[in-house]
Amino acid sequence: MTSHLDVDSVVLDIEGTTSATGFVVDVLYPYSRSRFGAVLSERSGDPDVLRAVAQVRELIGEPDADAVRVEKALNEWLDEDRKATPLKTLQGLIWSEGFARGELVSHFYDDVVPALRRWHAAGVRLHVYSSGSVAAQRAWFRSSPEGDLLPLVEGLYDTENAGPKQEPESYVTIAAAIGAAPGRILFLSDRPGELDAARAAGWQAVGVRRPGEPYYEQGVGDHPEAGTFDAITIARSTT
């Protein structure tokens, strides 16, 4: 059980924190894998796709790589669960389309949505920081089993607009974008390296440990921990 936390803003990780990593790996990853080829061919002129393809070519050191080679690299990174920005960009595009068509519905742990509604109603500003692209985050929150949750969320951050999740500088960037004092921001994540980086940037941090998640056995280091969002009480000071 965590103590009462006096903060103005909460920044949420998704995988392992608000939502099951297994859902992403078992449902979303195969969905994107089956559509990489189509998005590379059918949307080859899309600025987001062009940028992602250029980034793939740069990362693999092959400036002339064709669509087949690019797709091969994407699949290899997917197998490795590598947090490569162009992979996340293309997955975001694919998932957004899948959510829009109703072929995909996102997953949230049962304790999460009531807590988000409770915090939002209390005037806490909610943000998301995930390795998944902003487009994927937007689709994820818009297509929940409980409907559109985007109105609860004020800002969305990923590795492209904020930086790597284990670098303190990324959290400095987000704090500046939010316009909040670092000490008034709470970060919730299941990954100790991310919690360490947030704390190094002056944020408050709580580790979320859910049975069955990849980081459950590892723990959250020396950070306060919570098994569910119900264990996190936010009491904003009005002074």
Rank of each mutant, 00 (worst) to 15 (best):
T18V: 07
R125K: 13
F141C: 03
L186T: 11
D111E: 07
V70R: 11
L90C: 12
A52D: 06
V56Q: 11
V24F: 10
I178Y: 03
F99A: 08
D222R: 15
W140D: 11
G123D: 12
G123H: 12
L90R: 14
A197Q: 01
A20C: 05
A162Y: 02
S41Y: 05
K88S: 03
G61N: 07
F187H: 12
L74A: 11
A176C: 04
R125S: 11
A197P: 01
H4K: 14
L74T: 09
T159I: 03
D148T: 06
E169S: 04
A115K: 14
A181C: 08
R33H: 08
V206L: 03
A54K: 08
Y157D: 04
V56I: 15
K88F: 00
R57T: 15
L152W: 08
D66I: 15
D13N: 03
T21F: 02
E169F: 00
E62R: 08
S130C: 09
L156M: 07
G45Y: 04
A197M: 02
G37N: 09
L156Q: 15
I178D: 06
H4I: 08
S3D: 13
V134G: 08
Q137W: 01
A65K: 04
I232Y: 09
A226K: 07
D81M: 04
R191W: 01
P47N: 15
V25E: 07
E160C: 02
Y171V: 00
L104T: 14
E80I: 14
V7W: 03
P192F: 03
S131G: 08
D64K: 09
L126D: 12
S44P: 02
I232E: 04
R125I: 10
F141I: 02
G37T: 13
D158V: 01
R43N: 12
A226P: 07
Q166E: 08
S9Y: 09
F23D: 12
Q91G: 14
A197D: 01
A162L: 10
G102R: 10
L156K: 08
V153G: 04
A139I: 00
L50K: 13
S189M: 01
G155E: 15
S106P: 02
R43L: 14
R117H: 13
G92P: 07
I234M: 06
G61H: 06
R82D: 00
S143Q: 11
V7I: 10
R209K: 06
L90S: 14
Y215W: 14
E62F: 05
K72G: 06
E71N: 11
E80Q: 14
F141P: 00
G183Q: 13
V113E: 12
V25L: 08
L93I: 15
V124C: 10
G221E: 02
Y157C: 03
E80T: 15
G98F: 10
A205F: 01
R142M: 05
D26G: 14
T21D: 02
P47L: 12
W203F: 09
V49L: 08
P151C: 12
A200V: 07
G202S: 12
L50T: 15
I234F: 04
L188V: 06
V172N: 01
R35G: 11
T21S: 11
V70Y: 09
W119F: 06
P86I: 02
